[in-house]
């Protein structure tokens, strides 16, 4: 039976893993390669590395980091952040990344999804969508959640699938950082209406939140960051908990 996936997410700045407690206070939490290898040993199913570096020097650090991750981590990993065009993808693939995640660049240039899918296969393209529920609908945001667009979550996710996305990574901005649980209803609406896997993100605080997002939320995978980085929830404990609730896990 296909297992539900648990995915720790590591935000990288200047080659280090960081975690924003809020927008003003970004804490460094450790070496990304060591952390990734440790998560793999602990039973994580995949990893996501997002480069939040703004500078050129930091970008170069990230490319060499991807290679070191590929050398040391024995589970699949996705890299994202800073991919603007198709030529940004090749170095990441050659460095050993299994998938790339694109967000704002896909909204600004939707053809990019198909270009990556045709060159490398759909399984290589994760389309990440940040959305906020307001004015009675889910609106897609870009530029790290700073700019609202006219696009709506469900239409955009469907279009991304049609254009060749292999997975959707959906972050609810209403839930992100709250630790009150995932956006289960919206995640289920996405997952049940798409033919590709949906990764839920934003809101994990307790182990039962994962039970809910895999159950009610029908998510294929669940992503979280701080609760893993700060050791509030251990991956093995989480998997044991999910098993007792009859959620198939590795």
């Amino acid at each position: 039976m296909l297992a539900k996936r648990i995915i720790p997410c590591l935000d990288i700045r200047d080659g280090q893993t960081v975690k924003g407690i809020n927008f003003l206070d970004i804490r460094e939490v450790g070496d990304p390669v060591e952390m990734g290898a440790e998560y793999a040993r602990a039973g994580a199913d995949e990893l996501v590395y997002l480069d939040i570096t703004a500078t050129h020097e930091g970008r170069n650090l990230f490319a060499s980091l991807v290679r070191r991750i590929a050398e040391h981590v024995n589970i699949p990993f996705t890299v994202g952040g800073g991919i603007r065009e198709i030529r940004d993808v090749d170095p990441l693939l050659n460095a050993g990344a299994d998938k790339v995640s694109i967000n704002s660049a896909a909204v600004k240039n939707p053809d990019l999804i198909g270009q990556i899918a045709q060159s490398y296969g759909s399984q290589f393209v994760v389309v990440a969508i940040d959305a906020r529920f307001e004015d009675d609908d889910w609106y897609v945001y870009v530029n790290g959640g700073r700019i609202r667009t006219e696009r709506k979550l469900f239409e955009w996710a469907r279009e991304a699938e049609d254009r060749g996305a292999g997975e959707i990574l959906f972050t609810s901005m209403n839930h992100d950082g709250t630790k009150n649980g995932y956006a289960n209803k919206a995640t289920a609406d996405l997952s049940n209406n798409l033919g590709i896997p949906v990764i839920a993100s934003g809101g994990a605080g307790k182990m039962n939140h994962f039970v809910d997002v895999f159950g009610q939320g029908a998510a294929d995978a669940a992503l979280a960051a701080s609760i893993f980085h700060f050791r509030e929830i251990g991956i093995q404990d989480l998997k044991t908990h999910l098993r007792t609730h009859n959620i198939p896990v590795r």
Binding site: L2, R5, D45, S122, Q123, G195, P197
Partner: peptide, 30 residues
């Protein structure tokens, strides 16, 4: 959903490559 993506278990294993000790264990498919 297609592709079949993620960890799935190995059943009815036999032979020299897929040794008995991996029966029921999960491996990564795409």
């Amino acid at each position: 959903k297609v592709p079949h993506m993620g960890w799935n278990s190995l059943q009815q294993v036999r032979g020299r490559l897929i040794s008995q000790d991996v029966e029921g264990k999960f491996v990564y498919f795409v």
